[in-house]
């Protein structure tokens, strides 16, 4: 039985296979509308995350399956002190597959170790969020046509942003990928990722603190939010925040075919005026998130894919 706990649990081949299936789903959704009939997805969300939970539920419903679950620890037996291991043993009797979000890092792994059904990590604290990474990969693959030979700009909070770390880990497995790391000095990519991932894989990258300068080089611009609470003082925040806000003025420097991605929710780091730009792909990204989760459910449950 397979689980998805870390973005690197699947090999490159398995990831490519999953993305191809997701693209098939995107091209003809109706063909997959009965694939999971009679199957149940349990969404065990120990902390609220409406977007991810609804994306999983939409994915299962699109496949003809049904969903059950809880959306906060208060409404689960965790409030009574039940362990994750015991909860998943019980959920395994009720459902065929489980998507789990938990504020503590490693909780979905503990669940996978005791589950009788496949477990998908739907986010464990600041640690992993593999279906977001798969969503990002599918968006790039579907809209650019390939995952290799890309220059990816990562902008904003590169220090604490787990989506950025996971995306780097996942894309360095494809040849010819380069990174431009755009952030204030306070929020630069942690040294261990530069050393253990970028340097260890001989990946070309540069660190800059001005977005406009590097815009013309980018195939992908992955935006993240610069959060006020990450700064030591208000002055620095005010000084720096506008440098990392994407607006139509900055978009003028970008290539015609550059894509803007964002894991969402956005606050103010992408001006709403950019939404109309055809290169803004962040809402399409949310749609691809559903497709990739559909593909994942099919794969982990070993469901038969109907032929054209």
């Amino acid at each position: 039985m397979r689980h998805l706990i870390s973005p690197l649990d699947f090999s490159v081949e398995e990831t490519n296979e999953l993305l191809s299936l997701a693209e098939e789903i995107a091209a003809d959704r109706s063909r997959f509308s009965h694939v999971a009939e009679g199957k149940k997805l349990a969404t065990c969300f120990y902390e609220p995350s409406t977007r991810t939970r609804l994306s999983f539920e939409a994915a299962m419903l699109n496949l003809g399956g049904s969903v059950l679950g809880f959306s906060s620890a208060d409404s689960s037996s965790a409030a009574k002190g039940e362990s994750v291991a015991d909860t998943i043993r019980v959920i395994s009797c009720y459902a065929d597959i489980c998507a789990m979000r938990h504020p503590k890092e490693g909780a979905p792994l503990v669940a996978a170790m005791h589950a009788g059904i496949p477990v998908i990590n739907a986010g464990d604290g600041g640690h992993n969020h593999p279906t977001q990474t798969l969503t990002d990969l599918l968006t790039i693959k579907a809209l650019k046509g390939h995952l290799d030979n890309l220059t990816i700009g990562l902008c904003g909070d590169l220090k604490f942003g787990r989506t950025v770390h996971s995306l780097i880990n996942a894309t360095v497995r494809y040849p010819g990928v380069k990174f431009v790391l755009i952030s204030p000095e306070e929020l630069r990519l942690p040294g261990y990722i530069r050393k253990d991932v970028l340097d260890a894989n001989h990946i070309e990258y540069k660190e800059v603190d001005v977005l406009e300068e590097v815009m013309p080089e980018l195939d992908i611009l992955y935006m993240t939010r610069v959060q006020r609470e990450r700064f030591f003082n208000e002055e620095d925040y005010i000084r720096l925040k506008d440098s990392f806000i994407l607006d139509t003025k900055k978009m003028r420097y970008a290539r015609e075919d550059m894509l803007v991605l964002h894991p969402l929710p956005r606050v103010n780091e992408i001006s709403t005026e950019v939404d109309k730009d055809p290169r803004a792909a962040y809402f399409k990204q949310a749609q691809y998130g559903v497709y990739v989760r559909m593909a994942l459910i099919i794969k982990l449950l070993g469901l038969e894919v109907p032929t054209c």
Partner: peptide, 13 residues
């Protein structure tokens, strides 16, 4: 020693 780790709240793990 990571306070965010699941081992920090589940003593028997």
């Amino acid at each position: 020693k990571n306070p965010r780790c699941i081992t920090s709240i589940e003593q028997e793990l």
